[in-house]
């Protein structure tokens, strides 16, 4: 039982880290540009597909991953220049619609290019084993690497945001949009950079999970909405909030699914418990969101109301 708990704790962490990578770019875009981007999830998906293809072409997952980063950066750049840039001053409704259109376009294009059958990529040899945790319990090395890489990225992001000039501007901008102009920053290029960078983070997330999840055309969607939940819980514009909320959501979702039914068994008979657990578990993060919002409408770390 404790072993299972530890295992699921790690799985939850890993899922949370993944959500953070996706949510980090989104929350900056929301906070600084007040922009709704529904197409962020498909970029994560594109990252996964590109990683598969690049890995096949180069014969190495590592190289594939490395190539995916600039590629998704480019995707973000192109989208920003062609579409998003024209939408900053528009009502949210227009942003929602245009990016919804992009979701349709990109999803369909992905299906045309890669087909709708799930794809996968091999875990590189030296990362494919598992390490002992406690007792007989072992954990896949690759998943640990994912957690580590995600934490390193978070750390790097934190350093950039707290220790560099551009980071200071980002924070100022996310807290108060009018500040950016006052700081004399070239807003246009700042926006472009954030967008492209956010896309790259999402692509990175996609590439990292390509070996452990199936790569299919639907993978971006559920993650997108969970990333929204993360941002809302964390507080729009707060990277710190996104991190805390992502881990929270990752843990609640993962642990809820495995331990919800077990806990419910304490108060009802086993079959009803497993039934109720199965129904409740996927809803748990949304209920969590509802509770947090009811208490703090601006999210955990949100300054604006």
């Amino acid at each position: 039982m404790t072993n299972l708990f530890l295992l699921q704790l790690l799985n939850g962490m890993q899922f949370g880290i993944l959500l953070f990578l996706i949510a980090a770019g989104l929350t900056l875009v929301f906070g600084i540009m007040d922009f709704v981007n529904l197409a962020h999830g498909v970029i994560y998906m594109v990252g996964a597909y590109l990683a598969v293809t690049f890995s096949q072409v180069t014969g190495s997952y590592g190289l594939g991953l490395l190539l995916t980063l600039p590629a998704t950066l480019m995707v973000g750049l192109v989208l920003e220049i062609l579409v998003f840039r024209k939408l900053y001053d528009r009502p949210h409704l227009d942003q929602v619609l245009a990016t919804f259109g992009l979701v349709m376009i990109i999803s369909e294009a992905v299906e045309m290019i890669w087909g709708s059958a799930p794809l996968s990529v091999e875990i590189p040899q030296f990362l494919s084993g598992s390490v002992p945790l406690i007792g007989p319990l072992r954990y896949p090395v690759f998943r640990l690497v994912v957690i580590g890489a995600g934490l390193l990225t978070a750390l790097g992001l934190w350093l950039v945001i707290t220790r560099t000039r551009i980071g200071m501007r980002l924070r100022a901008g996310a807290a108060n949009r009018n500040m950016i102009a006052a700081l004399g920053v070239d807003i246009r290029s700042l926006f472009t950079i954030i967008f492209a960078f956010g896309a790259m983070l999402a692509g990175f997330a996609g590439a990292m999970v390509a070996p452990i999840l199936t790569v299919d055309p639907g993978m971006g969607e559920s993650v997108l909405i969970l990333a929204f939940v993360v941002i809302v819980i964390g507080g729009i514009g707060s990277v710190k909030g996104a991190f805390a909320a992502a881990i929270l959501v990752g843990l609640v979702d993962t642990l809820g699914r495995s331990f919800g039914p077990i806990l419910l068994r304490a108060i009802m008979d086993p079959s009803a418990a497993s039934q109720a657990g199965r129904v409740l578990a996927p809803m748990l993060v949304y209920i969590l969101m509802a509770i947090i919002l009811a208490l703090r409408p601006a999210g955990l770390f949100g300054a604006k109301s």
Binding site: L87, A98, G101, M104
Partner: peptide, 10 residues
């Protein structure tokens, strides 16, 4: 459909 939608909005 997506292309039409994006064009119409833009």
């Amino acid at each position: 459909f997506g292309v039409i939608l994006v064009m119409v909005v833009l």
